[in-house]
Design a protein around this nucleic acid. Sequence first.
RNA 1: GGAGAGAUGGCAGAGCGGUCGAAUGCGGCGGUCUUGAAAACCGUUGAGGUGUAAGCCUCCGGGGGUUCGAAUCCCUCUCUCUCCGCCA
Length: 424
Amino acid sequence: MLQVHVLRNDPAWVKQRLEVKRFGQTGLVDEIVSLDDDRKKAQSDCDNLLAQVNTLSKEIGDMMKQGKKPEAEELKSKVAAYKAEIADLAEQLKKIEELLKDKLVLLPNLPSEQVPVGKTPEDNVNVKESGTKPVLYKGAVPHWDLIKQYDLVDFETGAKITGSGFPLYKGKGAKLQRSLIQYFLDYNTEAGYTEYIPPFMVNEASAYATGQLPDKEGQMYHVTEDDFYLIPTAEVPVTNIYRDVILKEEEMPVKMTAYSPCFRREAGSFGKDVRGLNRVHQFEKIEIIQIVQPEKSYDVLEQMVTHVEKLLQKLELPYRILKLCGGDMGFASALTYDFEVYSAAQERWLEVSSVSNFESFQTNRLKCRYKDANGKMQLAHSLNGSSLALPRIYAALLENNQTENGIVLPAVLHKYFGADKISS
RNA sequence: GGAGAGAUGGCAGAGCGGUCGAAUGCGGCGGUCUUGAAAACCGUUGAGGUGUAAGCCUCCGGGGGUUCGAAUCCCUCUCUCUCCGCCA
């Protein structure tokens, strides 16, 4: 959520930024500023009346002590009149505040100045492309066929147990998955990230604080009986560790990593996009999150990008890094880099990580602050990224490394998997 | 699931319905002393809103109520702890 004072300071600039993000309702900016004016007015009227009531109450107290009952009674009726007025104003104020918040929540984060202008994924800027696309042997097939051939994932039984999009990993397929999780976590913790295993369901306050609510209500599975949401990413529970927390500067940067399953309803889409592991309702992901001082957040973003990039290099996968254009960025992000790996049999790029700087958009809702060197309270900046999402990595590893005699795994996985390849 | 206790400032922990934004201790910051440090002593130290400022207002788990006046009384919700039961 944006801070109102940002809109007040320079509404024209805010509107211009919102347009970069392809946000249509720039009129909201003026609405919000004007509502905030109303809020201030109502607030100060209310405060003034309260101040009078407070003084009178004290006087009444004094009078009672001195035994001046009649005078006290007179003041009491005066107070009663004020209180009626206050009740009125307070109700108005409450309505204004609610309306203000309802509107404010609709505004996406403002894109940083670096964000390329554009509206579709085609407008994203290819920052870097690296690694060589493998030349596959003649009989090479997409991962969904390899999965069958080596008996790694059983989609049909997963569908029987739950529904489509809930894969059942099996045997070596399950072990490969576990190896990847283990490796990613080790890689992240070695870089100084503290490992967490968070709750996989969150309450409404948490979902709201990281911006899943109200924006993406329909994307999450909702356990209505207890009013919990299944997490769509570990970002939600882990970032919420710092909800309502005041950090000391020496505690920063906060660096956290967590493995979790991710549950997404993902309405729509079909066909090649959802074939095999390309898009599923439950998948596994390892997330990295940092909470840092505002002036450092863009350097940290670059660090995180490099961190993920090295991981892809270790996995020996061809990848590219995209700087997302305004129209393709997420609601809460100020700048996002997407990572895609090339999956050779499908001959397409698959998104495997998204690294974003949210600046103070999340921390404003989280109320995650710190005291700066001057002792001033400030919102911290939050960032996160996947390191990494598993299914598509899994798919690309299978496809790119297939040979007539099995799937050859990258060296870093050998000790985790207990073998250097998957054979039938 | 049953019974009881509790929720107060960064932490610990007081708080007859008005003098409480809140004692005290620890911690933090500043100072005295010291070659330096420790100890000791003195001072200072919550957040938010509004305002140029002085000030004013709000906040003692959340919500509601009683009262001229609530951290303090009542109702309710949530959470935590202890005991019992059940259980991976």
